[in-house]
């Protein structure tokens, strides 16, 4: 019996190890590319060990796109967006989950349906709107348009549905105001969901490409993905720079994820137990 279990475990770990290697290899490959000269990764015997050109590649990349500036832009935009959007989406989700008002379900359905509109179809109207406000080429145009994000509202609402109404009623009877109930009673128990939504929003904004590309037009306002894309010309691509850029661009997401990971995972387990 225990031997069978052991075998099972070995088999499981073997499968998992393969999975880990498969999912980690692209990162490793990017890092190898970042430390080698452009073109090395194409040679008939690709190197799998780090090279010595990391500093050179990063210096060149910095010359091409100005790493500090675009990193700041991306961090600032994604960070501010995550905070603002989290507040707005959580409040909206709370209203949809716990308040009873006329047309609630209709409004919520319309919200969900808006997720079905292809993003590309909204670009030109949005662009015109931003131009009319005089917001083109500003942080406002990058951060504000997608603050109320339907999927985030949906995610939070589903989590809040499980929150017992009895607690809210008890708080009301005890004389707590609606704000107080929201911030002191409901939110504290939503930490895992908040963490998951925050990671989601941060990644969404960090990876966002088309809208930042359209909305800003001066290099000082570029976000990281837009700046990376400018490395691609017709025939001359410095793959060392590209790979160094790609590697750098993944760092903030990993850090952000690790920082919130504890809450995130306990959130998933929490809902599993229920």
């Amino acid at each position: 019996m225990s031997q069978r279990k052991l075998l099972q475990k070995i088999g499981l770990y073997a499968v998992l190890t393969v999975g880990v290697i498969i999912s980690l290899f692209p990162f490793y490959w990017a890092m190898i590319g970042a430390t080698n000269e452009s073109g090395k990764m194409f040679s008939s015997t690709p190197t799998l060990v780090p090279g010595t050109k990391l500093i050179e590649n990063i210096t060149n990349l910095n010359e091409s796109i100005g790493i500090g500036r675009v990193m700041f832009n991306s961090l600032f935009v994604a960070g501010t967006y995550t905070v603002l959007s989290l507040i707005i989406c959580t409040m909206a989700a709370y209203a949809f989950a716990k308040f009873h008002f006329k047309g609630r379900n209709v409004i919520f359905t319309i919200f969900l349906l808006s997720m079905m509109i292809p993003y590309h179809a909204t670009v030109i109207p949005l662009f015109k709107m931003m131009a009319a406000f005089g917001w083109l080429n500003t942080y406002k145009a990058l951060i504000l348009p997608n603050l109320a994000y339907p999927f985030a509202i949906f995610l939070m609402r589903q989590n809040m549905l499980a929150f017992p109404d009895a607690l809210i009623e008890a708080a009301r009877i005890d004389g707590a105001g609606e704000w107080r109930i929201f911030f002191r009673i409901v939110l504290p128990s939503m930490k895992p969901a908040l963490a998951a939504t925050a990671i989601f929003l941060f990644m969404y904004q960090w990876n966002s490409f088309l809208w930042p590309l359209i909305a800003v037009s001066s290099e000082e306002m570029y976000t990281f993905p837009v700046a990376l894309s400018s490395l691609f010309g017709l025939s001359r691509i410095d793959y060392g720079q590209v790979m160094a850029g790609v590697t750098l661009a993944t760092v903030p997401i990993i850090v952000f994820f690790l920082a919130l990971q504890r809450h995130f995972i306990s959130g998933m387990l929490g809902s599993a137990v229920k």
């Binding site: 091409s64 796109i65 088309l210 590309l213 359209i214 037009s217 001066s218 290099e219 837009v226 894309s229 400018s230 490395l231 691609f232 010309g233 017709l234």
Partner: peptide, 11 residues
């Protein structure tokens, strides 16, 4: 402004 080749057309 340095913009990716295909990105120029989107803009």
């Amino acid at each position: 402004e340095d913009i990716g080749r295909l990105d120029v057309y989107d803009k």
